[in-house]
Design a protein around this nucleic acid. Sequence first.
DNA 1: TTTATATATGAATAGTTCTTCAGATGGGCG
DNA 2: CGCCCATCTGAAGAACTATTCATATATAAA
Lengths: 113, 113
Amino acid sequence: MASVRERMPAAQDLTDTAEVFGLLADPGRLRLLLALLEGEMCVCDLAAVSGQSESAVSHALRLLRAHRIVTARRAGRMAFYRLEDAHVRMLLDLALAHTEHTQAIHPERGGTR
Amino acid sequence: MASVRERMPAAQDLTDTAEVFGLLADPGRLRLLLALLEGEMCVCDLAAVSGQSESAVSHALRLLRAHRIVTARRAGRMAFYRLEDAHVRMLLDLALAHTEHTQAIHPERGGTR
DNA sequence: TTTATATATGAATAGTTCTTCAGATGGGCG
DNA sequence: CGCCCATCTGAAGAACTATTCATATATAAA
């Protein structure tokens, strides 16, 4: 029990970790990030794929950009976003694997298509 | 790009996943869950280890209990909590590995001890 | 039965986050 | 130049979340 306290990460690491989880704690942002798992995409396509307004997407992307989860590449008047954070990528893969797994266990819930 | 939409999980799965991430998006709850990685602990020890008031810990545990992340075992007037969710355990392990890794890269930040 | 201790709860406040709307910026094109 | 289109931004309101304090429950001990 004393060892538990010793193994506890530093406060700064905990707030950083909590922040990352917080960024993933929104269905809209999850949609964006899952879409970006496959490769880069422009804002308008992200809005279409995620079913959100372009303004909402832009706000979300700004937040993710501020935390270096995604990076933007400008091409003319379009902006292409890309998932840049390997740790977040792993968390997303894990979450995705988990939903696919529970999908296999509870198929009555139904999927996307 | 059409394939991206097809691979997108169902709305319910996304909100569930976002909810789980949301539960991890708080340093206080992270401390509790990390402490529970090692095994079960009573509320008072969790409060001590996590440096929070017992009321705050009780509220946090209630939330985690409601989502079946932890379960409680009563023994006399004490309650022992245990981490019950394998998926959350994996997410915590991954996050922990990541902070230890960045620790190795940026040792100037300093650790707990 | 009284008292003390561990945990749980409710209510209120304070703080944070999301969404939307209106407008700004800035590149491309007629 | 003047306009259009993609993206970004700021501000405002609504909704949600956290923390605290006071109190409740329930068990154990005296």
